[in-house]
Write a protein that binds this DNA or RNA. Structure first.
Length: 359
DNA sequence: TTGATTTGACCGGG
DNA sequence: CCCGGTCAAATCAA
């Protein structure tokens, strides 16, 4: 056990070192790749020494295990548990990472885990079926702080500044296969629903969410969730704005990517922030002990009931208020999507040609 | 009591 | 003027 701990610490140290040298190494994809592999190796062997291998593969068979043979082939060099972590963490954490590194990544397309795709996209090669399609996206805009002016206005008029300037990312996620399929998969953040509208030409209403901590931390993040007309088992989720709440040490929401990219990498790769991040390991352990992420862990009470119907409840809602669990429903849903039309979740950035018809 | 959801009204861009 | 996004009062739920 002790050497497992020291291995973990070693891995964290490596991640830290990588972070420190990241600027210098940005132009050396090979070195970066090797560093990442080394970090993965260290964490993997740490995990092996913890002796949980059999336990979790037998007790908690992850749907990932039933995926396409070529996927498994691609992942054969990675420990199954690590794969699971990868799968469960490459959602929002990965997204956050991508936002911050995309400028570099698009050009260097270097890291071992993230390989450039013909056509300019980026694909998570290992541990996930996360596809990010970004054919012509120029750069990542800074977060739009101007949005915060909305609430502070004391005028009696209701200033409704639209968030059009904010970066917009479209994600397609399969509905959960088990449990309440009405619920859009959780993405790890806490959202508060603030509206729902029937959209012209769409069978299903669109639900509007903003970050629960919008007021407290002026977090501008928002998302829209809508069921696809042609595939009701899929949701199209449009994210606008960046979460700033997790940048605060006191902000409770997860994921809480630390300012350092290495920490985010570690998070994206193994699903845990290294101890150097202020987040404690405990909350993660608590979560990992509960394998029930998928079947409505974030489910709220509604299923039928609401007048609007489909797009439904908060992804965390009252039950998950300031949740400490980085629920992996989205990842689970991806893996669970066997009956759905696709196993992949795609991010579509502005300038792409999404198959979207509503926006 | 507090915080989330519902839902009709409001607002602004196209 | 239409439609999508947002507001906020009413309501619900823990």
């Amino acid at each position: 056990m002790d050497d497992a701990i020291s291995l973990i610490l070693h891995g964290c140290k490596l991640a830290e070192d990588l972070e420190l040298n990241l600027e210098n190494l940005a132009s050396q994809p090979e070195t970066l790749s090797k560093s990442c592999e080394e970090i993965i190796r260290v964490f993997a062997s740490a995990k092996e020494r913890l002796g949980f291998h059999q336990l979790s593969t037998t007790l908690y068979p992850h749907p990932m295990l039933f995926r396409e043979p070529q996927d498994l082939q691609q992942q054969q060099n990675i420990d199954p548990i690590l794969q699971e972590w990868l799968g469960s963490s490459c959602t929002s954490a990965m997204e956050t990472l991508l936002h911050q590194t995309q400028g570099v990544m698009a050009e260097k397309s270097a890291l071992g885990l993230i390989e450039s795709k013909v056509g300019g996209g980026i694909q998570m090669g290992s541990g996930s079926d996360l596809f990010i399609e970004s054919s012509s996206r120029s750069d990542v805009q800074a977060m739009d702080p101007s949005d915060s002016g909305r609430g502070s206005s004391s005028s009696s008029k209701r200033p409704r500044k639209r968030n059009d300037d904010a970066e917009k990312r479209t994600v397609r996620v399969p509905a959960q296969q088990f449990g309440n399929t009405e619920i859009p998969p959780d993405d790890g953040f806490t959202w508060r629903k603030y509206g729902q509208k029937e959209i012209l030409g769409s069978r299903f209403p669109r639900a509007y969410y903003r970050c629960t901590h919008q007021n407290l931390y002026h977090c501008p993040a928002k998302k829209q969730v809508q069921r696809l007309d042609d595939d009701p088992f899929q949701f199209e989720v449009v994210y606008r704005g960046e979460h700033t709440c997790h940048m605060s040490d006191t902000a409770p929401s997860f994921p809480r990517p630390a300012p350092g990219i290495a920490q985010e990498m570690a998070q994206a790769m193994i699903g845990q922030p290294p101890p150097s991040a202020a987040t404690s390991l405990g909350r993660w352990v608590d979560f990992s002990l509960g394998p029930g992420g998928s079947a409505g862990s974030s489910s709220s009470s509604m299923a039928a009931g609401s007048s609007g119907g489909a797009a439904g409840p908060s992804t965390v809602g009252r039950y998950g208020k300031e949740a400490d669990y980085p629920i992996t429903d989205m990842a689970d849903a991806m893996f669970n999507s066997g009956s759905s039309s696709t196993n992949s979740m795609e991010l579509i950035f502005p300038g792409d040609q999404p198959s979207d018809k509503n926006n």
